[in-house]
Structure formats: structure tokens, C-alpha cells
Write a protein that binds this DNA or RNA. Structure first.
Length: 423
RNA sequence: GUGGGUGUAGCUCAGUUGGCAGAGCACUAGGUUGUGGCCCUGGGGGCCGCGGGUUCAAAUCCCGUCACUCACCCCA
């Protein structure tokens, strides 16, 4: 038996890094006023189809969709935004306070062909803001994301930003784009020809060389922004510049979800082969209304947790494994029983202690202590126990002291708590 | 969905022209009666991915299949 294709176990060896990233993210987001929200991993298919867009790759061919026993069409969430918007609307959060800042962390599912940095179950750290239309929110989110990467020690990432316009300016832009494309149709790939009717914006994002060449001088959303969108985008850029957040204005950045408006961005890396995006986001001012709420601006981003972990692993940026405070070597049945109780008591006091419950030779037990990187070893032998004492060995200095059993716990607590501070 | 690469011990990998299934690391026991790392000696471990075919004989050649992996596509 093994995991199904594209799914994987995250084993204890790599968990420390996941926890470190999660801790930094939660701390930072909390400082910016974000609250955690937890949402289901399954929703009605319709939710994703409506929000992400019927003609997108995600909805057309990547979703895990199935009928439950009653026949309802359900889908394993391919992204987090739709569910959070649904939650915002369902609980009528706009009524008591339309301004909300959320984050959530969890698995997403897309049935794509797996490769480096791409899995069918992958994790996202998701951030969403409702009720704030100002460009200051856009720049603040990008600033916050940038700050997280800095804290994690990531430097060779680049932020790509673009503006996709809004309901006002997009129709005119689409007309201009379609006009341009109609003269280049013979140079477009099959996919793009399909997109002409369904979602022409996506053609700009095509990586096929012939398409890229044909679209070199294609109109960009940036050249067709209405006054409001232009002001908005300028404010975002000005803020970022003043804050020292480096970015690249990328006119071809479109993104594969239909709900984006105005600012869209992506944080890219070269460390993951073809999978360049470590994080991506954008504004979605029409989505809340689309899902049945009042017109409410929204903006958010998602971080590819797995990819972030991989980038950091590649940089060798790994948290140190915590050493074991104490390993207990018990020789004989009487010693075993006494040690068992000491061991549990120390565990209760938060001292990382382990012992072996089998009857092994002392040499084997010492070897195990060494393997576990134990800082101290408590040796409970018959000779010492006969005098109500045990030996405490410092594994680094090889110093050994005899400790009376009466004061054992207090003595160990003292020594090992000091040890903790040193770490 | 399409294409390339790879599947042999827990891990990393050798395996010649088709001829007994191998190494290093890890594990385990001992050398040292009760003291770790280094060293030495022994031991356990294998459906050679799976199924079929060719052959006296297949890890090796052929066909199929599955998995992993990288890339296209798309995205986190």
C-alpha cells in the first residue's frame, strides 16, 4: 500500500521547518490584525465554478469533484478564497463589520500531473481582506508578505506586479485585445484559440514561444486602465518604493482565476524548476457580490507552503533539531521501575527525557543515548541504587557525578533548566 | 492530457557478453562482566516495481503495466 499519486506524507524530519514557517506567519499576520478562520475542505462544486470561473483550467480539468450519496456535486477545495468569501457572506459578516482580515492554513487539492513543487494535495497559507478598497491595503499586503520572506531569510525572490483593471476599463481593453489578436490568429497555439472566446485575458499569459512572439506588442491592461485604476496602481507602486519593497512591473502577469481585478501579484523563485510561484494574490472587488453578498471589495494572497519549505530546504535554511535533555539507562528490573517513574515526572516538568524499556546491554543503551544526541545520561545501576544514588553523566564533557535519589528530581530540573537557557 | 528519464537491501547505488544477488551507510551482536562517538569481527535483512514473452538459463533481452521523477500545460 502506498499514498495515491501526487499525495505524500510529511515526515517528522521536516516538520520543524513547517512549524517554524507557520509560527512566523501567524505571529506576523496577527501583528497586522489578522484573525485565523478555519473552513471546510469540501464545498459545493458550484461555489468554485462560480468564483474561480467556468473556463479556467482549475475548474475545467483540475478539480476533485464527486457526487455524494445523495447526489450533490461536491469538490475538494482547489483554493481557499472562495470558501472564505462564502463564509463572509453566509455569516453576514458585512452587517456587523464589513472590514475583516482573515488568514487560514490548510490543504488544497488539484488533480494535475505532479512534478517538482507541485502536488495534488498541497498546503496554502491564505490571507484575505474584506471591505477595504484602498490601494493602501494592496501595498500593505505585499509589504507584509515581503516581510515574512525576509524573516524567513529568503532573499532571491522577486515580486511581479500588474494591474488587471476593473469592470469600467476591462471591456474597452478586451475589445482592443481582440482586435489585435484577430490579425494574429494563425500564430496562436490551440489553447489560445480556445481562449479567444472564453477568456481572452489568459492569452497574454501563454508561455508557448509562438504565442509569446505574436503577442509581443499586444495591448496590455496597463495601457487601458481607467483613471481610478491608474491612480490605484500608482499608489501601490509609490508605497512599495517608499517602503523599499523591490518589485517588477510585469505587464504579462494575468493569473489563472477569473475573479481578480486591479492589482495582481506573484512572488517568483528560480529554485523550483518550472514552478516559479511561491505566492500569488490579487484584488477581487466583484467576488463577494458574485457569491451573493453586498458589493464589497476584497483582496488576498496565498503562499505555497510546500514550495516555501522546499526553497528553504534548498537554501540549507533549516531549524536545528532540538537535542534530547536526558536519556535514562536503567540496569535491571528494580532500576527500570524506579526510572520509569522518574522519567514520567521529568516529562511532566517539561524536560525532554527518554528511556528504553527493553533489557539491553549498557553499551547498547549508551549508543542509543548518543544517537539521540542526549545532553545528559542518567545511569541507574544496582551498585548506586543500593546506596540510594544514581550517576549523572554529561555527554559532552564526559563528567560524571553521583546524585542521591532523594534530590534527584530537583537536581535534574535545576541542571537541565539551565541547559535549556543555553540553547 | 502529452513527452523524456528512472525503478535492485531501510538509504545511496554497483551488477561486464544472459550464467550463484553485491558494496557503502544504517540496523544488530560481540571485541570491553557496568559507560557513547573511532577502530576491528560476526549477524540479520531482497517478489531485482508488477505481469507476460524469448531462452537450458533473465536483475540483464522483448512486450505490456504501475509507480516515482523531470518537462509541457497551469498554478501555490
Amino acid at each position: 500500500m502506498q499514498t495515491i499519486r501526487g499525495f505524500r506524507d510529511i515526515l517528522p524530519e521536516s516538520i520543524a521547518l513547517w512549524q517554524k514557517i507557520e509560527k512566523e506567519a501567524v505571529q506576523l499576520f496577527t501583528a497586522f490584525g489578522f484573525k485565523e478562520i478555519r473552513i471546510p475542505v469540501i464545498e459545493k462544486t458550484q461555489l468554485f465554478a462560480r468564483s474561480i470561473g467556468e473556463a479556467t483550467d482549475i475548474v475545467e480539468k483540475e478539480m476533485y469533484t464527486f457526487a455524494d450519496r445523495k447526489g450533490d456535486l461536491l469538490t475538494l477545495r482547489p483554493e481557499g478564497t472562495a470558501s472564505i468569501v462564502r463564509s463572509y457572506v453566509q455569516h453576514k459578516m458585512y452587517a456587523s463589520d464589513p472590514v475583516r482580515r482573515f488568514f487560514t492554513i490548510g490543504p488544497m487539492f488539484r488533480r494535475e500531473r505532479p512534478q517538482k513543487g507541485r502536488y495534488r494535495q498541497f498546503y496554502q497559507i491564505d490571507v484575505e481582506v474584506f471591505g477595504i478598497a484602498s490601494a493602501y491595503m494592496d501595498s500593505q499586503l505585499i509589504f507584509m508578505l515581503n516581510e515574512l520572506f525576509l524573516r524567513l531569510g529568503l532573499t532571491d525572490l522577486s515580486a511581479h506586479i500588474n494591474s488587471l483593471g476593473c469592470q469600467e476599463c476591462r471591456p474597452a481593453f478586451q475589445t482592443a485585445l481582440l482586435n489585435f489578436i484577430s490579425s494574429k490568429k494563425d500564430q496562436l497555439c490551440e489553447n489560445c484559440l480556445r481562449r479567444v472566446d472564453k477568456n481572452p485575458l489568459r492569452i497574454l499569459d501563454c508561455k508557448t514561444p509562438s504565442c509569446k512572439a505574436a503577442l509581443e506588442n499586444a495591448p496590455a491592461t496597463l495601457d487601458h486602465l481607467c483613471k481610478d485604476c491608474e491612480d490605484h496602481f500608482n499608489t501601490v507602486k509609490t508605497n512599495l518604493k517608499k517602503q523599499g519593497v523591490a518589485f517588477i512591473e510585469d505587464r504579462s502577469l494575468v493569473r489563472g482565476l477569473d475573479y481578480y481585478t486591479r492589482t495582481a501579484w506573484e512572488i517568483q523563485t528560480t529554485a523550483l524548476g518550472a514552478q516559479s510561484a511561491v505566492a500569488g494574490g490579487g484584488r477581487y472587488d466583484g467576488l463577494v457580490k458574485e457569491i451573493g453578498g453586498p458589493a464589497t471589495p476584497g483582496i488576498g494572497f496565498a503562499i505555497g507552503f510546500d514550495r516555501l519549505v522546499e526553497v528553504m530546504e534548498q537554501m540549507g535554511n533549516l531549524p536545528e533539531e532540538l537535542p534530547l535533555d536526558l536519556f535514562i539507562v536503567a540496569m535491571g528490573d528494580d532500576a527500570m521501575e524506579k526510572c520509569y517513574h522518574w522519567s514520567c515526572e521529568l516529562n511532566q516538568k517539561g524536560i525532554c527525557t527518554e528511556m528504553d524499556f527493553g533489557s539491553k546491554s549498557m553499551k547498547a543503551l549508551m549508543k542509543r543515548a548518543d544517537k539521540l544526541n542526549a545532553q545528559y545520561v542518567l545511569i541507574a545501576g544496582e551498585t548506586e541504587l543500593a546506596q540510594d544514588a544514581v550517576i549523572l553523566r554529561n555527554m559532552n564533557t564526559k563528567e560524571q557525578v553521583t546524585v542521591p535519589t532523594q534530590t534527584l528530581i530537583s537536581e535534574l530540573t535545576r541542571i537541565l533548566k539551565n541547559n535549556d537557557i543555553k540553547k
